[in-house]
Amino acid sequence: MTAVLQILFDALSLGSLYALGALGIALIFGVMRLVNFAHGDYIAFCVFALLWPSIDAAAIVFIGKLPSLILIPLVIAIGAGLSVLSEIVVFRRFRNANPATMMIASFALGFVIRYFLLMLYSSRPKSIDLWSNLSLPIEIFGARIPLLQVITICTTIVVLLALTAFLKRTRFGLEMRAAAENFTMARMLGVRANNVIMLAFALSGALAAAIGLILVTQTGTVDIQMGVSVMLVAFIATVIGGLGSLTGAVIAGFLIGGATVLMQVILPVDARPFRDAFVYAAVIVTLIWRPNGLFAPKSAKQRV
């Protein structure tokens, strides 16, 4: 029983990270058909914002020293700000470009952000002590679960509930959902394209900041590469969930997290190093089975 609980919490907390990432990517894809490869670099940027720029090996903690109540909103604002800025400076000019061009532009932007960080902070991973007491285990029904896992899961649930409320209950939310369903039609009915797209970018950047904070607390290190792996799984989750479906993206994020943890447990010891290979094979099988994703919205049906 305790072992099962342990696995459940592992799966949920990993799935939470993927779900938050997938949501950030799906929000932008919904309104703009842009697959944003700079998302992982937003995550890294938010984490590096905790430190004062220096190329020394030792990290000089800067924003990271502030009390949590100020720190968390500040980092989230940085993420949202960076994301909106990239929309205004770069992506606004690509509104009518084809998806491949937009994708490469977003990759190029990510490249610029990454090397900007590298120039300021050097490529060495640095250690930082942010809320390290959160990794102490607490006991739930006899299983010892790191407090951070519980917090990660709770945060994700709160974020998801808040976002659902926002999308279902407010005017902006309604506009965003309309835009995700059919952007041209929404514009004709009076939805302001710029506002909706900027809002989507702001939310996406805020989610990136949240992922960054969780990652840095989990690992205790700051690394240029840290956003990449989450971002990649998040992409896969977005597609598996059905592009354009926010719910699908979240569920698929949790499914991939769950599958990863489950593979770790059930695979024979010899095959365990290949765990991720099995997960990716499962992804391919899922796509063959359901090419439009598990929860494809009606609007996403392909012609032919």
Partner: peptide
């Protein structure tokens, strides 16, 4: 896009 992501999964695999 499903083909793109599937090829990506192949690369990762």
């Amino acid at each position: 896009i499903a083909a793109s992501i599937a090829t990506f999964a192949m690369l990762a695999l």
